[in-house]
Design a protein around this nucleic acid. Structure first.
Lengths: 243, 243
DNA sequence: CGTAGTGTTGATGTACGTCAAGTATTGTGG
DNA sequence: CCACAATACTTGACGTACATCAACACTACG
């Protein structure tokens, strides 16, 4: 038990966390990092399909994914759900609670996941103490907004194959940011979730995976994806020329 | 010239602006409002179809709409555009520049429009001076995020008629917030822009307006909309019962 | 070794886009 | 004030990208 705690402690300091430059990209020196470190809670890992928070819950913290994967979901009055994001290690979730102090979407794990929790009250004080953090927070929220904009474009204007190609390229570039392989990775989410996220039917996603594989663009083995021809993928998204 | 300046000055103080509780909902007292007032620039009205800023422009300010209407647009690598928001008086635009200090979308007017400009450098200083403003900013960005989430749900999961009904109800409720008529208003945007925003073809939007009118739910006279049966509209969105 | 979760593949249907034509409405220059 | 475009909107006929329905295969797990 004591030993387990030590291991936990060993794993968690922000200043030595391999993800630190992802969580807070800029403007933080070592002493700032230590201050941040003090206010962060690390809880035990969360099991697959458990909720981090639900729509309507009071907003008490933001969360940094350390390992695993989290999806965020909004629900319509009619009762159907739209996945609005998949969150990989080093990414933050919980900004949806800033407007009303109540979460406007639901966050749950796709696999066993561990997160760092930053209680909002501490964060607020800390922001006053560290001007750089203030700006970092704004920047991160801005990224959130930009992400949503990209997804709006995808849902509103793209065809099915453009959607899937864009999705794969997005995952790939986030893998690269994390210094993992950009052309070979495992998808944490089932086809159903990909389909929901892209505004498609599962069958369509399945067929497109098959089609991309037939064309030699990617190799698919269950959830293990290998990108064989990055340029071909980009061409599918229409990124080549204007008109 | 001097006289014009006086008129301008008369019109513009935040503390007597009828929109103040819309721009900054809470946590600001009279003296705070005066401080805010000092850093705001008011420019002359912008003509129809002029750009407030373009994708890629350096982000220097956020803007509050005083009169008129502004649309924000993102562009895909393939070259097509998605309208991501219409902004009515009392609403703010420009948060898309927070992530990279560069605007990630384009803002342009749908009609002659006047805006208040809040330069970011002043705003930043002001935020340190007024803790309430800090929180207000966060809140407003959070609302922005929530808005985007609603649109994601709309684009990803709704049928054409659900989309248009949702759109009309959204406009209606924003009219009410502004203490204008909630069941009778003019749309500032052409059908083409509504269609783009909702991820539909113009013809579909036109047909749906006709259909809603035939069913007696609304009355359409060009861009003048009268909502005759609010409940019927809500029913179309599926807001009645779960399952 | 069943039962449930996940993924694939084929046959069929349909909501909506596309194409085309026509009618207001608005703006522009003589 | 009148041509005249140009823009905005509507309506109908037709096509298609994708959803839906259905059946089946594979893995996991009690």
């Amino acid at each position: 038990m004591n030993k387990a705690l030590n291991i936990q402690k060993l794993k968690v300091s922000c200043s030595q966390c391999s993800l630190k430059e992802l969580c807070f990209p800029r403007g933080m020196d070592a002493t700032d990092m230590d201050k941040l470190d003090e206010v962060i809670n690390r809880n035990r890992p969360i099991h697959k399909n458990e909720h981090l928070y639900r729509e309507g819950d009071p907003s008490r913290a933001i969360y940094a994914v350390r390992s695993g994967c989290i999806k965020t979901v909004v629900e319509s009055p009619a009762g159907d759900e739209q996945i609005i994001g998949f969150h990989l290690p080093g990414e933050l979730v919980g900004f949806d609670g800033f407007a009303t102090d109540t979460h406007s979407c639901t966050a749950l794990t796709l696999e066993t996941t561990s997160v760092c929790e930053l209680p909002l009250e501490n964060l607020e004080k800390l922001c006053e103490a560290i001007p750089g953090l203030q700006r970092a927070m704004r920047r991160i929220m801005g990224l959130e907004v930009n992400n949503d904009h990209d997804l709006l474009l995808l849902l509103g204007k793209m065809s099915a194959d453009e959607k899937l190609a864009t999705f794969l390229l997005d995952i790939s570039s986030r893998m690269r940011e994390r210094h993992w392989k950009e052309n070979e990775f495992n998808l944490a989410m089932p086809r159903q979730d990909i389909a929901n996220y892209l505004g498609l039917a599962v069958e369509t996603v399945s067929r497109l995976f098959a089609q991309f594989q037939d064309n030699g663009v990617i190799t698919v083995d269950k959830r293990h994806i290998t990108i064989n021809d990055m340029d071909a993928l980009k061409k599918i998204t229409g990124a080549c020329e204007h008109h």
